[in-house]
Design a protein around this nucleic acid. Structure first.
Lengths: 197, 197
DNA sequence: GTCGGATTGGCACCAGGTATCAGTATGAAC
DNA sequence: GTTCATACTGATACCTGGTGCCAATCCGAC
């Protein structure tokens, strides 16, 4: 019965739980061929919480009020929002957003940030993108933080169409620019902060 | 001791748990002023799972790879692809793509399908969206299958810029139309400062 | 040999339940 | 009044997936 060094087992344990946080200690016992006590000592040393705590943390993250508000479907984190005026959001380019070959962000992610923000900034029950004219000025790359700034150029409360301009920067370099036309459900412009996102 | 009608309590219970799924039966006892047994009978009748199951479900939802990597590689399934000529993809609008209030797809998902296809149809190592001019013609709704058709109007192998037109249909209704300009690596050694996808 | 860390076993205990049975309260039907 | 159904409460046994603690064992280094 050859035993794996403790360090290596710790690495494996951490990897297994990261891959599948739903594993119980008993299942880990089976996978790592050590007793359940050892698994628990290991979790203790590695400060990995028990299954239920892990699930609770995941549930809390996904239930995060900031995320679950109408803003929860917004791509990027809203940093500032002045309804019918302007808004700012931040979006970090991660592995899953880039072409693996080049490390360059896929355009639709950068677009999604801008589009989300353009819709979020409109203070209305229902706001839908009608059309957009967009330019990708330079590639955004893995790890870069994209700051999108949206300005409502014409709120069009009567006409039912708003014009929103969005500029996205990495540092002081502009990476994206877009002109959006947003349909808004004419009417409840400033009743409740009802902009959907 | 006036008692609340059972029906009303059921409504309250459902509302409380929806508002805060982290409530234990004991806490509900306090809020609804009935015994813990009654709470449990009520949950049974309303088919509301216990706290741990609720948290597990929430964790699973947020862990769902489809959800956690919503815009990963190509969006939609490629049905047909003739490089440098045309392509077709299908994308089904699911819960996670729509505004929860209206059931209407968020624009950037529809855009993502078209953008992915426009990039995929270009027969080159690296292809990045440079700019796009897009129109959302009618909303796409939950459950609808969007068929995007891309046509390469000018492959621009020498110039390093291709023009791709994409039309997206639900049934025979057009929901989206876009003109994309795609940078391609052949002939365009300088990808930097070019554009992205 | 002995020492010490690593590992294991065993037991008590906990939260947050399920499942089941028995007892009480209340109001309507006869 | 009695009877009956429904609603509610109490109590107990049991379950999972743990924590906390103590003691025993293994195993290599010295």
């Amino acid at each position: 019965m050859e035993r794996m060094p403790k360090k290596q087992r710790h690495q494996q344990l951490a990897r297994l739980i990261e891959e599948n946080p739903f594993l119980t200690d008993r299942e880990l016992t089976r996978l790592l061929k050590v007793s359940i006590q050892t698994i628990r000592l290991d979790r203790l040393e590695l400060a990995i919480p028990e299954l239920r705590e892990r699930l609770k943390l995941m549930a809390e993250r996904s239930y995060d009020p900031v995320r679950s508000l109408p803003l929860h479907e917004v791509i990027g984190d809203i940093l500032d929002l002045q309804l019918d005026k302007s808004g700012i959001s931040m979006f970090e380019i991660r592995d899953e957003h880039v072409f693996s070959r080049s490390g360059i962000a896929r355009g639709h992610h950068v677009f999604a940030q801008a589009n989300s923000l353009a819709v979020a900034v409109i203070n209305d029950e229902i706001a839908l993108t009608a059309s957009a004219d967009i330019r990708f000025i330079r590639p955004a790359r893995l790890g870069e933080k994209c700051i999108a700034k949206a300005y409502v150029r014409s709120s069009g409360v009567q006409k039912g169409k708003a014009k929103v301009e969005v500029f996205t920067y990495v540092g002081d370099e502009m990476v994206f620019q877009g002109n959006f036309v947003i349909y808004r459900s004419a009417g409840a412009a400033d009743v409740e902060g009802a902009g959907e996102a």
